Simulated scan of single mutants.
Amino acid sequence: MASDPHAALPASLRLEFEDGHLHAAPFGAHLLSWHCGGSERLYLSPRASFGAGKAIRGGVPVIFPQFSARGDGPRHGFARTLTWEALDTADAASPRLSFRLTDREETRRHWPYRFEAELDLEPTAERLRIALSVRNTDPNPIEFTAALHTYLRVADIAGTLVHGLEDRPYVDSTRGDAHCPPSDAPVRFEGEVDRIYPDTRQPLRLTDGEQLLRLEAEGFADTVVWNPGAELAAGLADLGAGEHRHFVCVEAGNVLSPVRLEPGAAWTGAQILTVEPSAGR
């Protein structure tokens, strides 16, 4: 049996709340575990690397200030590979974990702006709000793309569906960013799936035959749905053959159109995950 990947993170933090707990690391402000209602709701690869400067495979990586290779900086930005400051939330009205990242030499090497980012994790009994806030502290306007790269654990991808995108066109990254019409059907996972759905406003639902998870977004315009499929997964050293069957990524993001902030302005985007009773209960 694979060892617990959380054991390799002595700097990680644990937050208890009603009927569950969170496990997060200041490295990347990375949410590693959301245990709620008796079940783990996030996927963390048993081969995840926790070395300095390496992104963690699974949980919720924070993508900022660049999505994928859509820019001149590091792929998916630098936020996920830098250590954030863990904030004191002892006096918060409800349980939460908060982390802050401000510009420094490492960030200005790739993105020459001053900024302040904060990630807030706010759980309740059956709900989790993950909020990313960015403030422009630079004298010039800034533009960035961002996403919460959420790895959701599923029983088996063969029976997994994402509902709520049936009427939305999408950009298919597996086909050279081809623009595709609405599918008029829930998203299924038969091979690699890598899609960007612009302007998605309604709640989404993830079903895998055992659970029902509602996904909502605030401040984020787009939804990214991703699973590497068997062939790509087998070639990822921090994932491994067959592991793709146990997760899907449904990401809230601003990907296709960047956020623009004038000096002193701030923006917040959030993803809200809610566990709902399955149809058979």
Rank of each mutant, 00 (worst) to 15 (best):
D72Q: 14
D72N: 13
D72P: 02
D72H: 15
D72L: 12
G73R: 03
G73L: 09
G73M: 13
G73D: 06
G73N: 03
G73V: 07
P74C: 11
P74E: 13
P74G: 10
P74S: 06
P74Y: 10
R75M: 12
R75H: 14
R75V: 15
R75I: 13
H76I: 02
H76K: 05
H76R: 09
H76A: 06
H76Q: 06
G77I: 08
G77K: 03
G77W: 02
G77H: 05
G77E: 07
G77D: 03
G77Y: 06
F78T: 00
F78C: 00
F78N: 00
A79D: 05
A79S: 08
A79K: 01
R80I: 01
R80K: 08
R80G: 03
T81Y: 06
T81H: 04
T81F: 05
T81P: 00
T81G: 01
L82G: 00
L82K: 02
L82M: 06
L82T: 03
T83N: 01
T83C: 10
T83Y: 03
T83Q: 05
T83V: 11
W84A: 07
W84V: 04
W84Y: 11
W84I: 07
W84C: 03
W84F: 11
E85L: 14
E85A: 12
E85Y: 03
A86P: 11
A86H: 14
A86N: 04
A86Q: 09
L87K: 10
L87R: 11
L87A: 05
D88S: 11
D88P: 07
D88F: 12
D88G: 10
T89M: 15
T89G: 11
T89A: 13
T89D: 12
A90S: 15
A90K: 14
D91Y: 02
D91G: 06
A92K: 10
A92S: 15
A92Q: 13
A92W: 10
A92E: 14
A92R: 15
A93N: 04
A93M: 04
A93D: 07
A93I: 01
S94E: 15
S94C: 11
P95I: 12
P95M: 13
P95L: 15
P95H: 13
P95V: 12
R96A: 15
R96G: 04
R96W: 07
R96S: 14
R96M: 15
R96I: 06
L97S: 02
S98R: 08
S98I: 01
S98H: 01
F99L: 12
F99D: 07
F99H: 14
F99S: 09
R100Y: 06
R100L: 12
R100S: 12
R100N: 07
L101G: 01
L101C: 03
L101Y: 04
